[in-house]
């Protein structure tokens, strides 16, 4: 997590760096928007496309493309072996043409690929990419974890209704919203 300090008061540079490094050791939010790929625009375009295509099988929700691009960039920057795993997942899907994520996960041969798939799923649901030593925040409002309860509760900090418009009624648990 980057903490932006007020620059007007003169803080000792050493103290600031100390504070920053201890923070960043735990949480480091990457400005992924600015991240450019070493392979250039063409390669990143292909990766983004693959990421979206793999994600659309892994996650049975409508996916936002901008978030997909930013997630892929963050994974490339912070998750070891991500490009290779993405490539392998894409090839596997291309070859086996699984109908859905359930079929894919059953069929995936090795644990590292399963973990890679799971981390892609996790990033869509939580809105954050867990890197080797960092967490990159990609989204909050679009994080899929909020969609499955959107018929009952709000995304915290957003209005659920007009004033006093909520009630004690809740829809059945089994009735998942349509995504």
């Amino acid at each position: 997590m980057r903490i932006s300090r007020s620059t007007s008061p003169r803080i000792g540079r050493r103290e600031l760096l100390l504070g920053m490094s201890s923070l960043s050791a735990l949480f480091c939010v990457q400005a992924t928007r600015a991240a450019t790929l070493s392979g250039g625009a063409l390669r990143s375009g292909v990766v983004h496309q693959k990421f979206m295509s793999v994600s659309s099988l892994l996650v049975p929700h409508k996916l936002n493309e901008t978030i997909g691009i930013r997630t892929a960039d963050a994974m490339i920057a912070t998750v070891p072996d991500f490009p290779e795993h993405l490539e392998q997942l894409a090839s596997f899907i291309e070859a086996k043409k699984p109908a859905d994520v359930e079929e894919l996960m059953e069929a995936l041969p090795d644990v590292s690929l399963k973990n890679a798939a799971q981390s892609i799923i996790e990033s869509w649901y939580t809105g954050a990419v867990q890197g080797a030593s960092t967490i990159s925040v990609i989204s909050y409002e679009e994080a899929l974890m909020f969609k499955v309860t959107s018929d009952v509760m709000t995304i915290p900090s957003y209005a659920i209704s007009g004033p006093n418009g909520w009630t004690a009624d809740a829809p059945p648990l089994s009735q998942l919203p349509i995504f």
């Binding site: 997590m1 980057r2 903490i3 932006s4 300090r5 007020s6 007007s8 939010v29 990457q30 400005a31 992924t32 928007r33 600015a34 936002n64 901008t66 978030i67 930013r70 809105g127 954050a128 990159s136 925040v137 990609i138 989204s139 909050y140 409002e141 679009e142």
Partner: peptide
């Protein structure tokens, strides 16, 4: 939603 671009791109600020 502008949030899809903004989240995580802005630091946590004390000012």
């Amino acid at each position: 939603s502008p949030a899809v671009e903004l989240r995580g791109a802005t630091p946590i600020m004390d000012h």
